[in-house]
């Protein structure tokens, strides 16, 4: 595997994990435009734990993931008091606050960033990503996953069906924060360097696009969306000058042609029906 290919695959792995972090909240009906904030928390937690406190790689990654979960849990309570576009703005503001704190903190290196001493290779990132994909597919297949999708579709009815909406939404934020934090820790170890400028508004927008363009109806969406967003720009490198223009046009086309995302339940049903005629999926 060439160094370039390994690098692209590692970024793909990190983006897939990050996308699932945003997907978990989206699946329960909340749009999180603060992805970069959660990823920054994971990355900087990893930097402090590894560089300053001397933790090993595995324990650092586990603790950075938990840091993401804890912040996600705590931030869920004020954010869930808002609705719709205000929630999107609240999460966006959260990410800006995180970046602002890092930028003004000497301990966290401010605008200079922090250098990591330990590092991980592409296979470690990909195995972790595979584990996350398996976990999310598992979660979405359980009655809890079903309850999350019910909360997404109709909160009052989910409540009358016995679903604890608040608990589901808080858990979605916490587990989403965990995955975004995990992706940040992997990013830190893979690139060996964290700088706050990377965790900007564009990153939050892009990861939300991975999820929305991929589709929120099934666990396939973020996987396809992250792959689309990571691999297409690389494939478009041939026409370097036009690359971002072509990419932008592709996104607009996707939104027109498939407003519910690339992967929808209907699409999966049709594919399954074609592959296995006679077997009606349930």
């Amino acid at each position: 595997m060439s160094g370039y290919m390994a690098g692209v695959l590692a970024i793909l792995g990190i983006n897939v994990i990050f996308a699932y972090g945003i997907y978990l909240t989206a699946a329960a009906g909340q749009l999180n435009l603060g992805g970069a904030g959660f990823q920054a928390i994971g990355a900087y937690a990893a930097a402090i734990l590894s560089v300053e406190l001397g933790f090993g790689i595995v324990s650092t990654i586990v603790l950075a993931t938990l840091a993401g979960a804890l912040i996600g849990f705590l931030i869920a309570f004020p954010i869930l008091r808002t609705r719709g576009v205000y929630m999107v703005l609240a999460t966006f503001a959260f990410a800006e606050v995180v970046v602002g704190i890092i930028l003004n903190s000497d301990t966290l290196g401010g605008a200079m960033g922090m250098i990591m001493f330990d590092y991980i290779e592409t296979p470690a990132v990909l195995w972790t990503a595979a584990g996350v994909v398996a976990f999310v597919f598992y979660l979405m297949s359980t009655p809890i996953g079903l309850a999350m999708r019910a909360v997404h579709d109709d909160e009052p009815v989910a409540d009358l069906m016995g679903v604890n909406n608040r608990a589901i939404q808080v858990a979605a934020f916490a587990s989403g924060g965990a995955l975004a934090g995990l992706s940040g820790a992997l990013y830190a170890f893979y690139f060996g360097f964290v700088e706050v400028q990377y965790f900007n508004a564009f990153l939050s927008i892009f990861v939300l696009l991975y999820v929305l363009i991929g589709g929120t109806q099934t666990a396939w969406g973020p996987l396809i969306g992250a792959a689309f967003f990571t691999l297409i720009p690389e494939a478009l490198r041939i026409g370097e000058d036009w690359r971002f223009l072509i990419f932008g046009v592709l996104i607009v086309l996707m939104m027109i042609v498939r407003p519910e995302g690339i992967v929808t339940r209907d699409a999966i049903d049709r594919i399954v029906a074609r592959l296995m005629p006679g077997d009606r999926r349930a």
């Binding site: 597919f137 598992y138 979405m140 297949s141 359980t142 009655p143 809890i144 996953g145 079903l146 309850a147």
Partner: peptide, 10 residues
């Protein structure tokens, strides 16, 4: 425990 059963995959 029942809520953690991967019903959709079984």
């Amino acid at each position: 425990l029942r809520k953690l059963k991967p019903v959709g995959l079984l």
